[in-house]
Each structure stands twice: as structure tokens, then as C-alpha cells.
Amino acid sequence: MTSVTNRNGTPPAIRIQNVTKRFRTPAGGTYTALQDIDLTVEPGEFCAVVGPTGCGKSTTLTLITGQERASEGIVEVHGRPVDGITPDCGFMFQSDAILPWQSVLDNVSAGPRYRGVAKAEAHERARDWIRRVGLAGFEENFPHQLSGGMRKRVALAQNLINEPRILLMDEPFSALDVQTRAKMSAELLGLWEQTRPAVVFVTHDLEEAIALADKVVVLTAGPAGRVKATFPIDLPRPRPVQEIRFDPRFVEIYHSIWEALREEVDIAYAQTQRTAEVAA
């Protein structure tokens, strides 16, 4: 297999080429979640993926992590085929993945300790990241004593303390209110700038995608989701997330992407309606 490199002579952080993913259904049939997907994410690049429900966004993330294997095609991370759980990869879920019986300090230090770092050093590093995400003073609190936004900050620190080269995020802020969501997006960009992992950020929110990303990838409606279009985001960095939406260029980009996305949303909605009619 020929190695693919970018203009700097290094392989992409993520390369997905001609990938199809099929699942067995409970009835014994086959469901095609993704069909002939092509996606490349460079080191340090922030890529947002949007598309209607059921288009295969989350499945794409599981292929990158190695939790699922492609039925056909190539999935590579830093030039190496994904043949197991991907190392140096953080994953932030839609629901809280922090341990409810552990304190903030123990949750954030868990990664280094699992990797063999001594407890004292792991706690020192954890306190630094807790400070970076704005939770200094809450080290001994437990998750049930935190707001939703604070728990998301814990999850960010929990991932970034391990200095992942790739960070995968599956609608991480969707459960938050609008104001907290905007605040978390701004904090995410600030933290991302410090270490610059490659990011794949799955979201249903097109405004969020444009405000955060270097490029936005639109997937077609499922089943057999495909890449319909990729849009570079030429807004300057650093970006004031809460104000960038008022930039005329932001509005132009939004309209361009929405034209591609709207048709897929309509198709997905029509499929849902037909399914509901059959079930009735």
C-alpha cells in the first residue's frame, strides 16, 4: 500500500479512503451505515462533520478509534492502518463519561495514573489542567456537585491532560443551554490552541461547526451516508466564538453550507415520516 503524505512530507493525522461500513441487523440482514467515504484530517486541523440524524457521523468516529472496523476501504491514523484501539486518541462523548464516584482531581488524573505516572505527579498535572479549564477550587468536588458546563470542563481536562494527537468529539455540548454551549465552544478553542491536536467534531449545529472548524464536511442522509461536500472555513483565528456569527463572511459561509445540508435534512425527514406511516 502506497504511503500518502502532505506537502510537508508527513502523513495526515487521519485518512479515510473508500470506506464502507456495514452492520448486521437483528433480523439477520445488512445495514450500510457509510458508503465509499473519503475524509482526510491534517495534523492540528479542526474538522467539523455535519449531517442529518442517521448519516453515519458517530460511526465515522468509531472507525477512527478502532472500536469498529471498516467493511471495505482504508482507515489510517498518522500513516498507520487502524487495526486495534487507536493510541494517542481522546474521545469526548455527548453524555458525561466522568466517573461519578471520583472527585474532579481523581477523574482528571486517572489517565496519567493508568499510564503509569506516579500519583503525586499525576495530581500535579491534573491540578494544572483543572486550573486551565477554570475549575480551580473544585478539585475535591464530585460530579453530582457540578453544573453541566462544569462537568464538560472536567471531561475536556480529562482528555487533554493525556496530550492526545487526535481528539474526537461526538456532539459534546448538545445537552447544554445556548449560553453555556457558546461559552464551552470558546473555551474549547482556547484549549485546542495550546496543544493543537487534530480534531473531528461531530455536531448537528451548523453555526457551532463554522465557528470552531478549519473545514466543515457535510454527509448525505443515511443509510449509506457519503461525503457530499467539504467547505474550507477561511475565518481568521483566534476567533471570538460568540461574536464571529455576526461577521458577514460567517453569514456567507453559513448560506453556502446550508444549501448543501438542507436537501439532506429534507431527505432524512421524509424517510422518518415514511417509517412512521408504515409503523402506524
Rank of each mutant, 00 (worst) to 15 (best):
E45P: 08
G222I: 05
A13V: 11
S95N: 15
P12I: 00
Q158T: 15
F201K: 05
P223T: 12
G225S: 08
A13E: 04
G111C: 05
Y269H: 09
S95F: 14
E42A: 12
E193G: 07
T195G: 01
S256M: 08
I16K: 06
R237Q: 14
D177N: 10
G66H: 02
A126D: 10
R181A: 10
I130V: 11
K57H: 07
L219R: 08
D177E: 08
F91D: 08
V278R: 01
G51K: 10
S185P: 08
Y269A: 08
C89D: 10
L212Y: 09
Q94C: 13
K57N: 01
Y114R: 08
T5H: 04
S95V: 06
K183Y: 03
A122M: 09
V217F: 13
N141T: 11
R245N: 02
T2E: 12
T220S: 15
C55E: 03
A126V: 14
G225F: 02
A118S: 12
L63N: 11
V227C: 05
V77Q: 05
P238T: 10
E263K: 07
G148M: 13
S71T: 15
Q102A: 15
Q145P: 15
V50A: 00
D36T: 00
I166D: 05
M150H: 03
R15E: 15
I85E: 03
P81R: 07
R24N: 14
A268F: 00
T20K: 03
V49D: 03
F231A: 12
P26D: 11
V241N: 07
T25R: 01
H144M: 03
N159M: 14
K152D: 05
V265P: 05
E252N: 03
V49Y: 02
F23D: 04
Q273G: 01
S58I: 02
K21I: 13
G90S: 07
I257W: 01
I74V: 14
D234I: 09
H78T: 05
E263A: 14
G9Q: 06
A260Q: 10
A270Y: 01
L105N: 10
T195W: 00
A122T: 12
T272Q: 03
Y114C: 13
A157D: 06
Q102D: 11
R24L: 13
P81H: 06
R226H: 11
R181I: 13
L99P: 05
A157Q: 09
P12Y: 04
